[in-house]
């Protein structure tokens, strides 16, 4: 209950901000942060709970973005339907990739997902209708009231999508499915022998995770009024999606959210004040630091701190 109340408050605050705050840059930057919150949360369902590393975030994200763009170009489909279709397509991609490689050890899955990114990018580079290598210019329709600008509307949508992603992750984590996934991460053989249908659970996690990544990408074409393969299938999405849960903590559904908020905010600040190279360095250093020194992430540090201070 507390979760849903906080979710409603967050959403209401987003709508209120969109209606009252004038500065567009806030929403423009905020949107990117929210995309990373969703990606990190989605990544953690398979990577954090089940222990299967996915380097292919850009493939799922990009397929979602292109699904939306193509449907918009072909049928002028409304945004909400674009988002749903993007989720379905990326979910199917997750299922297909999973069927092919989730029987194997985790590292093979990780490598296969790298392959997925390149294959997806190649397909869209060569698909004329979707704009090929040069990309596709898209004309935004007018925003729906009460929003006076499209970016503000997208911002609120991104908040809603992030909330849905976190709610799904939370539901999985707290249900028998989450326990099964954690059993898989701890010992796949022991999980099988205690009745956990490991392959089915992994496929489920991979599909859900892929679908959520797809929805995160769905609004991207409208956000930029443009889509092209190189930036859509950019490895930076993979980096953010992997690094945020590692930084925030993989055990709890709030870990990726905290990680993504810290990381993308820091990145925005660093690339504005110093340089865009430095922001990759920030990710690299933070990633290595947390993985080595604080394997339970920021949440783990908090827990430890509270435990020692309460004694």
């Amino acid at each position: 209950m507390k979760f849903w109340i906080s979710a409603a408050i967050v959403l209401a605050a987003a709508v209120a901000a969109a209606v009252t705050v004038k500065n567009e840059y806030f929403f423009f930057a905020g949107y990117t942060v929210l995309v990373f919150v969703t990606l990190a949360t989605a990544w953690n369902i398979l990577g954090g709970y089940a222990g299967y590393v996915n380097f292919g975030t850009p493939a799922f994200f990009g397929l979602g973005a292109y699904t939306a763009a193509v449907l918009f170009k072909a049928f002028a489909m409304p945004l909400v339907l674009q988002i749903l279709a993007a989720g379905v397509m990326s979910g199917l991609l997750g299922l297909a990739a999973g069927v092919l490689t989730l029987r194997l050890r985790g590292i093979f899955f990780a490598i296969a997902t790298i392959a997925l990114v390149v294959i997806m990018e190649t397909l869209f580079i060569n698909w004329r209708f979707a704009g090929g290598a040069t990309g596709l210019q898209l004309l935004r329709p007018p925003p729906m009231p009460p929003f006076e600008s499209y970016i503000k509307m997208l911002f609120v949508l991104a908040v809603a999508i992030a909330i849905v992603a976190v709610a799904v992750a939370r539901w999985i984590e707290q249900s028998w499915i989450g326990r099964g996934l954690r059993a898989i991460r701890d010992s796949e053989e022991a999980a099988e022998c205690t009745g956990v249908p490991t392959l089915r659970l992994k496929l489920f996690a991979c599909t859900v995770s892929g679908a959520l990544m797809g929805t995160a990408g769905a609004c991207m074409p409208m956000y930029l009024s443009f889509i092209e393969p190189a930036s859509t299938f950019n490895l930076n999405y993979a980096i953010g999606a992997l690094a945020s849960p590692m930084i925030g903590g993989t055990a709890h559904y709030l870990g990726p959210v905290i990680g993504a908020l810290i990381l993308s905010t820091l990145q925005q600040v660093v690339s504005v004040t110093i340089s865009s190279e430095m922001n990759v360095l920030v990710v690299g250093v933070l990633l290595v630091f947390f993985v080595v020194a604080a394997p339970e992430g920021v949440l783990g540090l908090f827990k430890k701190w509270f435990r020692t201070s309460s004694k």
């Binding site: 980096i239 690094a243 590692m246 360095l281 990710v283 690299g284 933070l286 990633l287 290595v288 993985v291």
Partner: peptide, 8 residues
Amino acid sequence: AFFFGLAL
């Protein structure tokens, strides 16, 4: 993740 960070 460690080696990925190292690469970056």
